[in-house]
Design a protein around this nucleic acid. Structure first.
Lengths: 205, 205
DNA sequence: GTCTATAATAAGATAGAC
DNA sequence: GTCTATCTTATTATAGAC
């Protein structure tokens, strides 16, 4: 994400804001230009088309998302600590930028081909396969009889699903339960500990 | 969802297909008309605008989603049976129509105002508040010391998050783990039992 | 590199005949 | 109710001056 010129950088920043809010189809080149403090012609000078600009933004955001995921993995050996670290940090990462999750689901709704290709690109440039790294950790804990036998992949999906749901379903949740404010730190801290407790009690022997 | 004419019914069917696949902004009235076997003029004759047609579709789909949710609730009293029934049926419901989940998230990404208003409409026409009904069931099990004390709302969010995640993230999951086919019944059955076991072991005293 | 002006076209919406 | 033809506007994209 090193851009040669200041203008190029401003364009990508503006495009990111607009695409994350409106999605590919809802975004307008006019608005992106305005946000970047330039005009449409210059957009096309730097990025030949809307599609190209969109791909640039998507690539960055998927990379970021993957990095956030990576940052949630602790080297700690003790499994309960590892688990707690993962849940707490992953939720913190998502809290910082919940729109990205929705944006990626948005793109998946458009077919998912682009996401797949960006992901494959990232994976091939990376020698450590992060998701498998987590599976290994879980398998190790099972082998050492620290936790009962579970399917590591499914456990991972459960952790991710539980962590992201409240952020993408925010308006629904706040309509069904009027006392909840998803972004409040009291709710988020509670969310972390409830997930951890459920999973930890659900795993330990 | 009773439509007076056959044409009106065909229009809504076609519109549902197209909006679910492309979203509001990506959908084209032309394509909807073609899918319904008519032309654009007739679309506007029945539904004054794209926005109106979209709202009709959204309203139906949110209602359906809510009904699916409702159908996952068993009257059974024994808590582990209730839990199993909820997870197994909810996943079956989503499996039948995974695009709807994505569609609703799509709409939430557009601000969520419409989803909120449709939800409120449904809730006000309904004397039993379903989400609270589940919370009550959980609270009862806690009071009877069948399960350890947990926050009922958070448990509900966890169940939903775990259940829907694999369906909306399908392309990502299948790229990261090449051996998985999310739609295969072996994967789905495994998903159900892994969620149930994790939660049940995580709850029982 | 950056702008103004404009082309080219796509898309929602309507008029008017049948 | 249904169609063809057409209007109107929004939007991506480019030409050409500076």
């Amino acid at each position: 994400m090193e851009y040669s010129s200041e203008t190029e950088k401003k364009i990508v920043e503006a495009a990111t804001t607009v695409f994350l809010e409106k999605g590919m189809d809802g975004a307008r080149m006019e608005e992106i230009a305005r946000n970047a403090g330039i005009n449409k012609a210059l957009l096309h000078y730097y990025f030949r088309s809307k599609e190209k600009l969109y791909q640039e933004v998507l690539r960055n955001e998927v990379r970021h998302f993957y990095l956030r995921f990576f940052n949630s993995i602790s080297p700690v050996d003790e499994f309960s600590e590892f688990l707690k670290h993962f849940i707490y940090n992953y939720i913190d990462q998502i809290k910082e930028n919940p729109q990205v999750v929705r944006f990626i689901f948005w793109e998946i709704g458009r077919g998912g081909k682009l996401v797949r290709s960006v992901l494959r690109e990232i994976l091939s440039n990376q020698h450590t396969r992060i998701p498998h790294l987590i599976s290994d950790k879980i398998n190790k804990a099972i082998a050492e009889k620290k936790i009962r036998p579970v399917d590591p992949q499914h456990l991972l999906f459960s952790l991710i699903g539980m962590s992201i749901f409240v952020f993408i379903a925010k308006p629904v949740i706040e309509t069904l339960f009027e006392d909840i404010d998803v972004n409040s730190s009291s709710f988020i801290e509670k969310r972390k500990s409830e997930i951890f407790n459920l999973v930890w009690f659900g795993l330990k022997i």
